[in-house]
Simulated assay, not measured.
Amino acid sequence: MRQSKAFDIAILSILIATMIVIQVLSTIVYSVWPMPISPTIAGIPVIIASVVLGPKRGAIVGFAMGLILFIQATITPGVTNWLFTPFIPIPGTNHGSGWALIVTFVPRILIGVFPYYAYKLFKNRFGAGLAGFIGSITNTILVLGFIFLFFGSLLKWSFAYLITAIIATNSLVEAAAAVILTAAIVPALMKMRGK
């Protein structure tokens, strides 16, 4: 039991560290990236934590992801940062919005919860891939859905625009990466964990 708990803490720490590295590197790479696609892959460690360590620890890693994004949006310049932190004024105003905290934290925490239950349906490589897909679309649908709900009128988003944004190229690349990496990594970690 003690060995299993130590292994879980080690995996949790590695996944959080990996997520930080991915976020920092992708910020640097995407600042000079010539392609119109800039997929968010920092959620993959959250998905893996959910499946391997369970929804509570997955939610912790998801909260850490939200916190990283919150800090990044608060301290680095960006046109849309006001969507992710209340400390950046909404364009045309001198104040931010508390709804930005919902946009930033809730989807990331739920990336750490939903994949666990998707994996439980099959408990094999297919289930791991399904968990990757569920985690990825959870992030896409909730982030864009909350932006539409709280800031859609300000951004002049229509419902049709929201649907188009959800099924845009970024989300397809993100889902494919999540499926492939989760299906590849989860079985190895489960084997190491003795599950």
Rank of each mutant, 00 (worst) to 15 (best):
M1E: 05
R2F: 07
Q3F: 06
S4L: 01
F7P: 08
F7K: 14
F7W: 10
D8Y: 02
L12W: 04
S13P: 02
L15D: 14
L15A: 11
I16E: 07
A17H: 10
A17K: 02
I20V: 15
V21E: 05
I22S: 10
I22Y: 04
Q23S: 15
Q23W: 03
L25M: 10
L25C: 13
S26M: 13
I28L: 14
I28Y: 13
V29S: 02
P34S: 06
I37S: 00
P39D: 03
T40V: 06
T40R: 03
G43N: 10
P45I: 09
I47G: 01
V51W: 01
V52Q: 12
G54L: 07
R57W: 01
A59T: 01
A59G: 08
G62I: 05
F63Q: 01
M65V: 00
L67P: 02
L67H: 04
F70R: 00
F70Q: 08
Q72S: 15
Q72Y: 04
A73F: 02
T76H: 08
T76Q: 10
T76E: 09
G78F: 09
N81A: 07
W82V: 00
L83W: 06
F84N: 14
T85I: 01
T85L: 01
P89K: 12
P89R: 11
I90H: 13
P91L: 15
P91Y: 06
G92T: 05
S97Y: 01
A100T: 01
I102V: 14
I109A: 07
L110M: 09
G112N: 06
V113H: 02
F114Q: 06
F114D: 10
Y119G: 09
K120H: 09
K120A: 11
F122R: 15
G132H: 09
F133P: 05
G135F: 09
G135H: 14
S136N: 11
S136K: 11
I137A: 03
T140H: 11
V143G: 02
L144W: 02
F146Q: 13
I147F: 00
F148H: 14
L149I: 11
F150A: 13
G152K: 11
L154H: 15
K156R: 14
W157I: 06
W157H: 12
S158N: 09
I163K: 02
I166Y: 07
T169S: 04
N170I: 08
N170C: 08
S171Y: 03
S171V: 02
V173M: 07
E174T: 08
E174S: 05
A175T: 15
A175K: 02
A176F: 04
A177M: 09
I180Q: 00
I180M: 03
L181V: 08
A184K: 06
I185F: 07
I185E: 05
V186D: 02
V186P: 04
P187R: 13
L189Q: 02
L189V: 12
M190D: 07
M192G: 14
K195Q: 08
